[in-house]
Simulated scan of single mutants.
Amino acid sequence: MSAIENFSTTQLQNVIPSYLYQEYADDDDLQAFVDAQNALAQGYQNWFLQTPLGLYTAPSINGPLLDWVGQGVYGISRPVLSTQTSRRVAGYNEYTYNTFPYDGLKSSVTGTAQIASDDIYKRVLTWHLYKGDGYQFSVLWLKKRIARFLNGVNGTDYPVLDVLPSITVSGSVFTVNEAYSQSLVFLQQCISNNVLALPFQYSIVINAVTLSSDGGVLVVNPFAGYPSNSTSLPPGNIYSNGGAVCVVPGITPNPSAPPVYFGSITADELYSLGGGNLPLTNPGVGTGQLWNNGGVVCIA
């Protein structure tokens, strides 16, 4: 899907030129007109050869032309990704007494809405149009679709078997555990706005993982917003050293502080808590407790 169509046959690359009847062939003005017409026709032909309309992943398919192809050829409109929620207050028991007119009506809208970019629009098209996974829903089908959406820039194909996300199932709820990224945010918005085709019997929950383990070292995803160095940070604060979670030295841990365990604390919670009270020695292999290993947060 990611390759651009190549018309290498000469007959397909060139239009059949128009020509003058022999009795007019010596008329320079008419010949110039025919030559101009052939040049224009060849220009249109070249554009169509370089812009294969059915291949929406082509770089030349963008903007309004992408909308025309997505809607006109495939019947899929450019989605609007919205976080808006609407609230309508009306009725006797819907608001605090004496704060609103007795027969009043109040509507409010919160959140944001934005039209999907070309990149996200193409990923949505690929979600619906990719045929290689078949039509039978399964956990593997869902993993492939999600991996292709997250990594297939501009809707292109991707070797998804190398990057399948973790999915757990509880009843009819499928929980997707994946490292936080902007693509994951867009996926979450697409699912919540019913943009992507999914079985209505199931619910899909996106769990953005920002903390992970790299050989026992606690690693934070760049999108978590941690400081990239310890400059100007007070002792005990948390920062990211190339992804590894580190603690600014200079503070003595409180031995009575409650333990902190990997998997039970989020990146935001750890950043707010700080690392000053993490133990300075390994509290026990296999416990999953976080500890300060010479300034680097490790997982026991």
Rank of each mutant, 00 (worst) to 15 (best):
34 V>N: 10
18 S>T: 08
59 P>K: 14
10 T>W: 12
35 D>P: 03
38 N>T: 02
65 L>P: 06
70 G>W: 03
54 G>L: 09
77 S>F: 09
44 Y>Q: 03
49 L>W: 07
72 G>K: 03
14 N>W: 14
26 D>V: 04
75 G>A: 01
35 D>N: 13
56 Y>N: 04
37 Q>R: 06
10 T>G: 04
57 T>A: 08
35 D>T: 13
58 A>L: 06
27 D>H: 01
71 Q>D: 13
15 V>K: 03
12 L>A: 03
21 Y>H: 04
75 G>Y: 10
49 L>I: 15
43 G>V: 08
43 G>K: 03
24 Y>W: 01
62 N>M: 02
16 I>C: 02
15 V>D: 04
13 Q>E: 12
69 V>G: 05
71 Q>A: 10
34 V>Y: 10
44 Y>F: 15
13 Q>T: 15
11 Q>D: 09
47 W>N: 09
59 P>Q: 14
77 S>L: 12
65 L>A: 02
15 V>G: 10
22 Q>I: 08
54 G>F: 13
31 Q>R: 08
57 T>W: 15
47 W>D: 10
26 D>Y: 02
18 S>I: 10
40 L>A: 12
55 L>V: 14
18 S>D: 04
43 G>T: 07
40 L>S: 11
67 D>M: 01
29 D>F: 10
12 L>I: 05
51 T>H: 07
70 G>H: 09
24 Y>E: 00
56 Y>K: 00
25 A>S: 15
57 T>C: 09
27 D>R: 05
37 Q>K: 05
46 N>V: 08
63 G>P: 00
58 A>M: 11
20 L>H: 00
18 S>H: 13
10 T>F: 13
32 A>R: 12
70 G>C: 06
53 L>M: 06
13 Q>V: 06
25 A>Y: 01
25 A>P: 00
48 F>V: 11
65 L>H: 00
47 W>F: 14
42 Q>L: 04
63 G>A: 02
16 I>H: 10
61 I>R: 07
78 R>S: 03
60 S>V: 14
39 A>E: 14
12 L>S: 13
58 A>N: 15
26 D>Q: 02
53 L>I: 12
50 Q>A: 15
51 T>D: 09
63 G>W: 01
12 L>H: 12
30 L>S: 03
30 L>Q: 09
26 D>T: 12
39 A>C: 02
58 A>W: 07
73 V>Q: 06
69 V>H: 03
29 D>R: 13
51 T>C: 12
65 L>S: 07
29 D>Q: 12
60 S>L: 12
27 D>P: 02
44 Y>H: 07
23 E>H: 02
67 D>R: 07
61 I>A: 04
40 L>Y: 10
13 Q>N: 11
39 A>T: 06
59 P>A: 12
65 L>W: 01
31 Q>D: 08
31 Q>E: 09
61 I>G: 04
56 Y>S: 01
56 Y>L: 11
34 V>R: 07
